[in-house]
């Protein structure tokens, strides 16, 4: 292994370089240790140069998620003002509609890469998310909703990692024009959005359950099977626990998505320099900055898709559970 790693560096070294054989002779372990040493050395050097400025009270990282009113729309007590989150909702909706209809209009018998990716996602929504949880009729009725949940959340999450000029708190001047600073933000990092989707799911699955079984039978189906001979008080207790668990779904489904995306963005913010600014230790930035890349790849490559998948899958499971013959 070490020789295999050493070989390319030997080849990469310029011909006749006196350091080439020395470099080629280093083991992987030594290279890793040198790398860590250099990494820490730079941080210590920066700490010695810039020192500690003390805690920065002026910097408020949470303000990155603050919604400033851009266009005020007030209908009585309801604030429908256009802000950053509404813009992201528009972008997510527009992008979802544009991408899906664009692909749908250009469906070829021999698909290209983009079409293949969309087909894989569509097939996954149909056969992995909806198929196993819902019967044929329910799947037909609820597939558009669940598929939209998946694609819409996915696009919302993904555009959350594109830096867009949305930070109106800080601006920069281009030919006299005050342009908002580029920032990353995700609509799903705001609790309102996952919560309203969760409410739709929550109400829908109860309505479907009542429609399929009738109110009493549906409520009775909340009790796990095998409790027929249990005394009524114990049954009521278990029913109360089940009822609480149904209400807990409101929190778990919405907060899971919201907290994951918010935490991801906070991590990127802190690792990308926020922590160094906040604590006034510039050297910390050198340490955390490489981690920002790692978290960015993790968020874009896994979390964004995973959270959309989990939300859609749980939606299908809740709907299927409410309408299936046995709970």
């Amino acid at each position: 292994m070490s020789s295999a790693v050493a070989e390319p560096s030997t080849q990469a070294a310029p011909a006749g370089s006196p350091e080439a054989p020395k470099s080629g002779g280093l083991s992987t372990k030594a290279k890793v240790l040198i790398g860590i040493g250099v990494y820490l050395g730079i941080a210590i050097l920066l700490l010695l140069i810039f020192g500690n400025d003390g805690k920065n009270e002026a910097f408020k990282p949470q303000n990155e998620f603050k919604l400033e009113e851009w266009i005020g729309i007030h209908l009585g007590p309801i604030d429908l003002s256009i802000n950053k989150a509404v813009l992201y909702l528009f972008i997510a909706s527009g992008l979802t509609i544009w991408a899906m209809t664009w692909i749908a209009k250009r469906m070829q018998q021999k698909p290209n890469r983009v079409q293949t990716a969309v087909e894989v996602a569509y097939d996954m929504t149909k056969n992995t998310i909806v198929g196993p949880s819902l019967d044929k009729n329910m799947a037909k009725r609820w597939f558009p909703f669940i598929a939209t949940v998946f694609f819409w959340i996915w696009f919302s999450n993904m555009i959350g990692f594109l830096p867009l000029p949305t930070n109106t708190e800080h601006t920069f001047s281009v030919f006299g024009l005050e342009i908002p600073s580029f920032a990353i933000y995700a609509a799903t990092a705001n609790l309102s959005i996952p919560l309203v989707l969760t409410l739709v799911v929550w109400i829908s699955y109860h309505v479907e359950g009542i429609r399929a079984k009738g109110l009493v039978k549906y409520l009775a189906s909340w009790l796990p099977p095998g409790l027929e001979d249990m005394n009524p008080i114990a049954k009521a207790f278990i029913f109360a626990i089940e009822a609480i668990s149904h209400f807990a779904r409101l929190i778990s489904l919405s907060v899971r998505l919201f907290a994951n995306i918010l935490a991801g963005h906070l991590l990127l913010l802190f690792m990308g320099g926020g922590l160094a600014v906040l604590l006034g230790i510039a050297a910390l930035g050198a340490l955390t900055f490489p981690l920002a890349f790692f978290f960015f790849i993790l968020e874009v490559g896994l979390i964004a898709t995973l959270q959309a998948f989990i939300f859609a899958t749980l939606t299908a499971i809740y709907l299927g559970g409410a309408t299936s013959a046995s709970h």
């Binding site: 429908l80 989150a85 509404v86 528009f90 939209t148 309102s192 959005i193 309203v196 739709v200």
Partner: peptide
């Protein structure tokens, strides 16, 4: 803290997208 306005926007835009 959820905002009613944002929730309504979400419902409208999600509904339209669907």
């Amino acid at each position: 803290s959820p905002g009613i306005g944002l929730m309504i926007w979400t419902l409208i835009l999600f509904g339209f997208t669907m």
